[in-house]
């Protein structure tokens, strides 16, 4: 994991006048799955949004595949191969499953070293999420909460991203599907994709993540191997309240 795909240096972010993130720095290597943990309101979602360019007021450097993306519009960031799955799903309720997927479609891309990145099609995604395959023409607004959750992940994958920012994907999804999601993430990882995962479910994080950062009140308080975090009950109690 030598080449770093995404590196964030001293990221600060504000909502209006409220300062939310304080000098957050993190690093993700090619094919690495990294957990971003912390209790409610710690700033996990804000970090992901700020990386994506969805927060107006921010400062600090964000480098993706060697390019500075800290001043780019979200759509340019996405076109470079950064996928974003929001925590509140935000599927297009008037569009069908197929149409939702089509909105996410982007050309296939290659890594900075010239190797092709994984390419996603509807067929592959339906194999991954059979629920979706069973209802390709159902409007998003008429799907259950969990079905929508699967759709939002699938929609982002349609953009053939190199790195995915996943905000609590296991939330509201049945355990069997979470298991599938674990397998999916592992499969994505094997294809060389990197993932930054905001997660509260430590079992889920444990099953897929290599390393973890723990946020508290907008500061990074802990970082290291996932295994070390699992062993460190003191940190878990203090920062994750487990």
């Amino acid at each position: 994991m030598s080449t770093s795909v995404l590196s964030v240096d001293n990221l600060n972010a504000w909502y209006g006048a409220a300062h939310i993130l304080f000098d957050v720095s993190l690093n993700i290597g090619r094919g690495e799955v990294v957990a971003l943990m912390g209790r409610n309101g710690a700033g996990k979602s804000t970090t992901l949004k700020a990386i994506m360019g969805l927060i107006e007021r921010r400062s600090g450097a964000v480098t993706f595949e060697g390019r500075d993306i800290s001043r780019l519009d979200p759509f340019r960031v996405a076109r470079l191969g950064l996928g974003y799955v929001p925590e509140d799903r935000r599927i297009f309720t008037e569009l069908t499953v197929n149409e939702n997927l089509d909105v996410g479609r982007q050309p296939s891309r290659t890594w900075s070293d010239g190797n092709p990145a994984p390419v996603w099609t509807e067929e592959r995604l339906f194999a991954l999420f059979p629920n979706l395959g069973a209802m390709p023409d159902r409007p998003g607004g008429q799907m259950s909460g969990g079905e929508q959750q699967m759709l939002t992940v699938a929609r982002t994958l349609m953009g053939n991203p190199l790195l995915v920012l996943l905000d609590e994907p296991s939330e509201g999804v049945a355990p069997v599907i979470v298991e599938q999601m674990v397998n999916t993430i592992v499969a994505l990882k094997q294809e060389g994709l990197s993932i930054l995962l905001s997660e509260q479910n430590i079992h889920f994080a444990e099953a897929v993540c290599d390393r973890a950062y723990v946020l508290e009140k907008g500061h990074i308080r802990w970082q290291g191997e996932m295994q070390a975090l699992l062993a460190d009950t003191e940190t878990q109690r203090a920062l994750l309240t487990i």
Partner: peptide, 25 residues
């Protein structure tokens, strides 16, 4: 057309359309 689908999607949530790589402006 895809243009039409993008329009309908943007109708509902233009920020998200942008985050999916569409130049919504």
């Amino acid at each position: 057309t895809r243009f039409g689908r993008l329009i309908r999607a943007a109708t509902q949530d233009r920020e998200m359309v942008g985050a999916l790589g569409v130049d919504q402006a």
